[in-house]
Design a binder for these strands. Structure first.
Length: 447
DNA sequence: TCTGGGGTCCTAGGACCC
DNA sequence: TCTGGGGTCCTAGGACCC
């Protein structure tokens, strides 16, 4: 890796840039609270089932890494400070980060809050060398956001990402070693890079795929070169086989896409103590429905498909979904569908995680039926409510049909859930017992 | 040591239409 | 009367990314 500045490559050679902020969440926390400087800081869940989302380099020196269970992290580093995370704050920093990249080129594609790919080809007329552009970007991120980052440059996303990984600081024997900050992979270097790379380093190869490849005797990227793609496909699927074959040749045709649209959104939560029984699960559905409904409205979208995911104490998961002929963004409607979907599975086992996801988006103005229900109607819908009373009747009927359909498919009545729609409100009752789990409190009588 | 929460994409089977 | 094949949508599960 001869990344000496005097052999700086051309834009033609390394048009793709990847930036990755160092220890992003933890760094923001330290910026906002200077008393944390020099201390081992993490962001993550501190409860029994929590994991580390981001670890400062001081924490990493003690062996703490992201995705590590917090229980383990604390054992490695008893003085570890685990903060709960303030995602609105990280989003503010992320927007400022994106706007610095945007000053370089509008052709960029965010990956999470703290990484960005950029296509530098539009800089051609400025006669700026890619390494120079990368160094400028790093300087601005440091001087204006007070954050550190690593930048990689390559022919495509594959090499840019591998390069940015090498640009970062490393921990060796509990000591922090500075990284080069900017790393590029020139055409001559590409083959050597791939030669020494384990398959696990490739994008899309996680623990499961790595294990399958290992069983086939494939440990290194170079091992993939001679493999017959059709026989590889029998083990890892045709799409993965094609991707691996391309990457092994250093080819990656994924474009930098600055116009990607959100395809799904949702909310899930792992509980320190598992939920027991339909009552607790349904109450949590209502909370999740509120989160998802607000997120949809913030996006100006309605969703036709809702999915519920349950994870049990043995870590097995199960999902149920339903696609409607119209979109919803209303808390009451989403809640009743979520409860019907959750109620269609056997809830006698404790539930460790409950997730609720929305997809198949429509723009609100393209929704064939405008849904609205009493308790959580947003103001703009309420203004239209009177003149759209007929549509509202339609939507109530359509929603009821959807709920009936769920019960018919899954035999939901057999697990003790029934529902009724009345007026503008919605209520779900358990057949056994008189508890109500609708939008009203359990003791509220029907109007 | 025992695994979060935000997402994306792929696969496979079934239903339905032409 | 018995049967095809392709396309699209939906559902469920799994793997992966940060």
């Amino acid at each position: 890796m001869s990344n000496s500045p005097n052999s700086s490559p051309s834009l033609h050679e390394v048009p793709i840039l990847h930036v990755d902020l160092d220890a992003f969440f933890a760094s923001v926390e330290i910026l906002d609270d200077p008393s944390l400087v020099g201390r081992p800081v993490c962001v993550g869940g501190s409860a029994a089932r929590g994991v580390i989302a981001s670890a400062s380099y001081e924490a990493r020196r003690q062996g703490v890494t992201s995705a590590m269970p917090s229980v383990v992290a604390r054992r490695l580093c008893p003085e570890l400070i685990i903060l709960p995370g303030r995602f609105e704050r990280y989003e503010q920093y992320s927007h400022r980060f994106h706007s610095l990249v945007n000053d370089l080129t509008p052709e960029y594609e965010p990956l999470g809050l703290d990484e960005v790919f950029a296509d530098l080809r539009s800089l051609r007329r400025l006669r700026i060398r890619p390494v120079e552009a990368a160094q400028q970007l790093r300087r601005r991120i440091r001087e204006e956001l007070f954050l550190e980052c690593g930048v990689g440059l390559g022919r495509n996303k594959l090499f840019a990402k591998l390069a940015s990984k090498r640009s970062k600081p490393r921990i060796v024997d509990h000591q922090l070693l500075e990284g080069p900050g900017v790393v590029w992979v020139s055409r001559e270097m590409e083959r050597n890079w791939l030669e020494e790379m384990p398959v696990r380093a490739l994008w899309g190869v996680g623990p499961a795929t790595a294990k399958k490849l290992q069983q086939l005797g494939l440990y290194w990227v170079r091992d993939l070169r001679g493999v017959d793609q059709a026989s590889l496909a029998r083990h890892v699927g045709s799409a993965m086989a094609a991707t691996l074959a391309s990457y092994a040749r250093g080819e990656d045709d994924r474009p930098v896409d600055s116009r990607r649209e959100l395809k799904s959104l949702g909310h899930d939560q792992t509980f320190a103590t598992s939920l027991v029984g339909p009552g607790e699960v349904f109450a949590q559905c209502r909370h999740h429905a509120g989160v998802v409904a607000r997120a949809l409205r913030a996006q100006g979208r309605v969703a036709r498909t809702l999915s519920v995911v349950l994870r049990f104490d043995d870590l097995t998961s199960l999902s149920r979904s339903q696609t409607l002929p119209f979109g919803v963004d209303d808390e009451a409607a989403i809640c009743s569908l979520a409860q019907a979907l959750a109620g269609s599975v056997d809830l006698s086992r404790p539930v460790r995680l409950l997730g609720l996801y929305a997809s198949s988006f429509l723009a609100r103005e393209n929704n064939p039926v405008q849904l609205s229900f009493g308790v959580s109607v947003s103001s703009d819908v309420r203004d239209e409510a009177v003149e759209h009373s007929r549509e509202r009747q339609m939507s109530s009927a359509a929603l009821r049909d959807a709920l009936d359909d769920i019960r018919q498919r899954y035999g939901a009545n057999s697990v003790g859930v029934a529902s009724d729609l009345y007026g503008d409100g919605l209520r779900i009752e358990r057949q056994r017992g008189s508890h109500a789990f609708g939008p009203e409190s359990p003791t509220t009588p029907a109007p």
